[in-house]
Write a protein that binds this DNA or RNA. Structure first.
Lengths: 160, 160
DNA sequence: AACTGAGGTTAGCCTTGACTAACATTGTTA
DNA sequence: TAACAATGTTAGTCAAGGCTAACCTCAGTT
């Protein structure tokens, strides 16, 4: 129960996403999605099936077991969370956020995951409100410079 | 110029930190720091020296070249940045922040790095001020629940 | 029913990066 | 100065995870 390698997580996540889209997973699809050659997929599938994570009948399509689906879904959730954080909070462009999410999704502790999801939640909850801090926070994060001093503030001791 | 592997970055960072502390890097130290055996270090050093990143005379100590020092320093800076973010902003306990920083430091794009450093900078700049948003933001991130409504607010349309 | 081409598989190879066991060097200490 | 303990190195092994080349299956076409 030590967990799965980055490579294994990538395969399981890919299969999960294909399954989410109500498509049937074939070796070629997975190879394209992960930018590897078909024999690599075949080897990975054999290894994963020995661990009870996927099932495949020869020349047939690849299916996640319950266990494999659980892992794949978990990785995918981490990916989504990171993407949301990178794009919505940090304001990174979609493709940068996507790429970074792919690379970082394998390296988050549960604690970090929890904290990041709180930030995303908070920022989302504030969206659309004229919340003072939010505009300034987002301005700084996105523009990289301090917003101009806020003159009308009464409840802020020193307004940067 | 494609970059360096996670393993290579770890070795260079370790050597950089030892160098920072004005210590001399020996095979055994590096092995202990990275929790690997000495022959692994020897192999890594040979490989890195072929790439012009380190130098070592047989049975002597290991030194970073200018090029290697640059890479090691860069990795270390990423590590410090991530640690600061995880600890100071997300409020994670030091050992969790440390562990996550170690794993994530290899997977940050320059863009993400830049954005995260802005957040850290902003949070640091606000420390000690009675800035309205900061307290609420940090409360939420750390406690995981919305702070109580703020009654005295005049410049916030709706205060969650 | 035979053919053909896309997709799947196998065999065999390579690199990375770890390991153990055995051997070599060095520096300290008797 | 000789010996020994600590440190460093070499040789050989292994697993993971890619790859290419060659071969196999199967579905659709003729």
């Amino acid at each position: 129960m030590v967990g799965y390698s980055q490579s294994e997580e990538d395969y399981l996540e890919t299969l999960y996403v294909i399954q989410l889209e109500n498509r049937v997973a074939r070796v070629k699809d997975v190879a394209q999605a992960l930018d590897v050659k078909m024999p690599s997929v075949v080897a990975a599938v054999r290894s994963l099936s020995e661990k009870g994570l996927v099932e495949q009948e020869k020349y047939g399509h690849i299916e996640l077991t319950k266990k494999g689906e659980k892992v794949g879904k978990d990785v995918y959730k981490r990916h989504q969370l990171l993407y949301a954080f990178l794009h919505e909070v940090l304001g990174l462009e979609p493709w940068v956020a996507e790429e970074d999410a792919c690379r970082m999704e394998h390296h988050l502790s549960p604690q970090t995951r929890e904290r990041i999801s709180r930030i995303v939640e908070y920022i989302r909850a504030c969206k659309g409100d004229e919340v003072h801090f939010l505009k300034r926070f987002m301005y700084f994060v996105n523009a990289g410079e301090m917003p101009a001093p806020c003159l009308g503030c009464t409840n802020i001791k020193r307004c940067r």
